[in-house]
Design a protein around this nucleic acid. Structure first.
Lengths: 196, 196
DNA sequence: TTATTATATATCATACTGATATATTGTCAA
DNA sequence: TTGACAATATATCAGTATGATATATAATAA
């Protein structure tokens, strides 16, 4: 069976060309040219509900994308802040398209809130309720942001074909955040009712 | 204002004592002694819906916990597979309890599915529907697992005070997974109805 | 008996975060 | 008008985690 293992290994190596940060950046560059700083801003607004990235990965990735011919860099001459504007190349667009056709490898969730609740017996119901309340507040705030996005997007759905896809992700957030809030109510009840 | 910045920096350094992997391990050790291998198994079953960790972080963390006196290590003599069993110390339990009282820093979500949908315009509706269908299938499978857990936990809720807290996290999963499924249906409709 | 799966520990290249450093431009109040 | 602060902009680094790989024993199934 060793021949098979070797083959599998090679397959994996050949396919694992996709570093997520590269794909996100190329995705953002696919409809507008951006600086590293602007890419980070997009992450912290439009993508923040389901993705995040730091400067420490963005800037090295941009340099690497240029080196590999997937993006190009130009300096902004009208500006004295040495602003570097990145654009996607044809090769970069092909790379992005290829990645989009591949099946999703993994959705990764790390709820520190649930982790603390799972070990909640150590400190008792009051402490658990404190974490649930903090979670409820944060959720309510972000839900109201998403509802704003939804309103705007629904009003300009036919202005650009990308808007439909943005709306899809916003609707996902709205649905799950409402489920979070419903859970917060039930969780509170469970902790108060069931004595232990 | 520099004095303030310095003060803030020191505060942060002093508070950022909590490495997540340490807390998870101590949490698991708080109600039973375990080997590194068993810790990984717990992660991949009970915790997998909201947390994950690899051997590459577990084993070094265990060594470090022992070094810091938060856990102790003993060798299993009845076993020829050099099995190393770890237990939590009083100091370790205090550390865990302290962490549990601190507010949650961050719940981190990285939905590759949503990322691909967000950039879905590049490849069109059919490709998007493919990813949604894969997501639906995975969700349905995991929901059925969670419903099994729920049944078991509800039947032994008063056997151990920890069960209430486990149930809390299971209910979270059930609620959110049902929201995912509702979204899948609506997302399909949106992609088929709205032309563009 | 032999192949496979499960148990068990450990390390390493690669990737990402959060913090830090540095510098310029825009804004607004005293 | 100047002085403080916020926003814009790029870049690097220590610390931390992942995913793959290596190694070996015990249990189980063919």
């Amino acid at each position: 069976m060793f021949w098979f293992m070797g083959w599998l290994k090679e397959r994996k190596l050949a396919m694992a060309i996709e570093k997520k940060i590269d794909c996100v950046i190329l995705g953002l560059l696919s409809h507008e040219e951006l600086t590293g700083y602007e890419i980070k801003k997009r992450m912290d607004t439009a993508l923040k509900y389901f993705w995040s990235a730091s400067y420490g990965s963005i800037y090295p990735a941009l340099a690497d994308l240029v080196r590999r011919g997937l993006a190009t860099k130009k300096e902004d001459m009208e500006n004295k802040r040495n602003k570097l504007i990145y654009s996607i190349t044809d090769e970069g667009r092909n790379y992005l398209k290829h990645w989009l056709t591949l099946p999703v490898e993994k959705d990764e969730l790390r709820y520190e809130t649930l982790l603390k609740l799972f070990f909640g017996n150590e400190q008792g119901a009051e402490q658990a309720l404190f974490h649930i309340e903090a979670f409820r507040k944060k959720t309510e705030l972000e839900l109201s942001e998403l509802l704003e996005y939804e309103k705007v997007l629904k009003n300009c759905l036919d202005e650009d074909s990308t808007h439909k896809y943005y709306l899809l992700t916003v609707e996902f957030g709205i649905k799950t955040y409402r489920a979070y809030l419903a859970w917060c109510r039930e969780a509170g009840k469970l902790l108060k009712d069931v004595q232990g």
